[in-house]
Nucleic acid binder design. Sequence first.
RNA 1: GCCGGCGUGGCGAAAUGGCAGACGCAACGGACUUAAAAUCCGUUAUUCCGAAAGGAGUGUGCGGGUUCGAGUCCCGCCGCCGGCACCA
Length: 735
Amino acid sequence: SYDWSREISTTHPEYFRWTQWIFLQLYNAWFNPDTQKAEPIATYTGNDADAVRLAYVAEVPVNWCPELGTVLANEEVVDGKSEVGGFAVERRPLRQWMLRITAYADRLLEGLDALDWPEGVKLLQRNWIGRSEGATVRFQISDSEYAVEVFTTRPDTLFGATYVVLSPEHPLVAKITTSEQLENVAAYQKKISSKSDLERTELSKEKTGVFTGAYAVNPANGEKVPVWIADYVLLSYGTGAIMAVPAHDERDFEFAKAFGLPIREVVRKDSVGTGVPPVISPTPFFEKDSFPGDGVSINSGFLDGLPTAEAKSAMLTFLEEHGHGLRTVTTKLRDWLFSRQRYWGEPFPIIWEDGQHRALPDHELPVIQPEMDDFKPTGTSEPPLAKATEWVAYSETARRETNTMPQWAGSCWYYLRFCDSRLKTRFVGEQAEKYWMSAAGHGGVDLYVGGTEHAVLHLLYARFWHKVLFDLGYVNSSEPFRKLVNQGMILGPDGQKMSKSRGNVVTPEHVISEYGADSLRLYEMFMGPLEQMKPWSMKGVEGVYRFLARVWRLAMKENQEGRWEISSDLTEEPPTASQLRVLHATIKKVTEDFEAMAFNTAIAQLMVGTNEFVNASPRPVESLRILLPLLSPMAPHLAEELWQILGTKFSGFDGRASTAAWPVYDPKILEVEEIELIIQINGKLKDKIRVGKTSSEEDVLLLAMASPKIQEAVAGKEIAKTILVPGKLVNLVVR
RNA sequence: GCCGGCGUGGCGAAAUGGCAGACGCAACGGACUUAAAAUCCGUUAUUCCGAAAGGAGUGUGCGGGUUCGAGUCCCGCCGCCGGCACCA
């Protein structure tokens, strides 16, 4: 049941004052690469603190929709137009608040291993972080002061780099393009800039690009290779430039074929992993395919004969020794764009003065946005709060930050607030945090149930914030959510996702008014495994409704006047031996299934337990003392009501809630004198026998052989082997 | 294309490598009832043999394998669902 005294709202000032406070902890901290931890900014000894803060300001390109007057997320932009309304969206650089989540990439990755999360969700986070190891390699532009840096995971293929490609938006393009190519390059850039990211990736098949006229020097062999621009290279990943090795990269291969660029083989598949290069056979290849796999280096000078792994490290050593490159790790993860141009959302506790930002002191929190008649977008890139001029004017010379935080901010730490939701002096009490979040050695929330849609959003953001709070000593656990379970979606009766347009939506209100909340809850748990998607069925609800009615009639009987009263069949006589066994089997199964969150099978067993007593007359009241508490967590209204009613006549139904009387099973009751063994011949079931539970193996075998069916089956055959699994079966292998 | 999940009766589903289909729905038959609803009892994977009692065989998407024994473990396919997608 819920403890409503802990209810919180992330939009309440008493809550979001602490969201703002946590933001200030990020603002006042930096990530120390030596300790791999966040530390107070005071420990930073460099000369530009603003360049290392975990919360910082930067100019970044955003999806700006002039018509809607707001920035849109990538997901909200379709084919270069806004998803809502279909208005044009343009890329525009804006001054934004960013959170340095990339500093935590390695720890966010490593931390996943110890988490009890579905592998699928862990994988989504791993892919999202997208860590890859490789090298940045410097290519000097010939006859120029400039050099281009590329990132590659395959430094071993450097001898096969036959051209270089820059992203069309790369700043170097303007500097190195020759006058003859200027027009072509400009036209191509213009064409690309009008495309959204989505379009650029969707039309992914056809490779396009333009030669810049410039050449770069391959640092491995001194060769001059042409420099191109192409939209298959993304500015946002790596260095925004690549060395193209068409023989060993599918995309480079397609591009090279399209534009007639040279293809040079530098890796051969080795023969059976011996590391020895195969006898060079006539080059059969590059009619159709590149070879992106590992092998042995060829045509590569000092790398020749080395397997890929060794060739990589030899090349890295060479690059570092000669100042041509560095070992580098890149991630797909970008820093988190943390500001929005919206009225709602937590205002930043930040003041601007003389072009400098600074934190508000803690005692001025919470910062609450003013009441505004017109809180709509301004039509410019100015946030709506900029119109509240009185509020913005913090002092004669200082102005408030007018951006607000995104909707994710409040949910990044709410689980901590639940530990201590009313505390005024701290975001969570130290003792409360220790008590609730440090259980079972690991810490973090014991069990978190939610959908997969949060995999790389909320679940990643919250882990990031939690690790910062951990580093700064505010919490005791390094991870927020120790165990995660994804509940499956309930589909419409047609097996399709519920949606208004399909007309297959079933509302809980409708079900509750028809069958009651107990039936709704019980059916949802009975439908199937928690993690699984499953279709709704009204007939199924009726089934559990009938089951609950049976439980009711176990205790109650309708009298002549049509009123329900305690059934006269109920007796204090103890249950029969077989009834008692069913009851204790039910306790065992329900208790264990609850631990495993296998609610569907727990309910099935409760049905078995109930059915055992439906026709019993007299009916031992002990059955209800045991069954009601087991049912209570899933059908609390019914269980509690019966518990109270029976308490007026029988002992043992005391005033406490029925769940508090959770029974414990007695293993002795579950033991049986005789067990049924199955007898198989060559693994196929042939007969069953009953044997005493203490029977010796010899006795069991004799009994098995005595069975007429077995006699018949083995007649005239040789028994080659006998397998006896105690308490389970006898298997005779015959020939 | 890559990654992940899932394929078991008419349906939702059970099954530490050991009796496949628990439990529920639907269907059919019966009891109660003037009747219906409600309730209770029974049958219900499939093929074949048998008048019946009963018996024999086949079955967990497909094909192999490991094992005394495979729905379960391994290899290779097929299908459905979800996610990512020019990440160098």
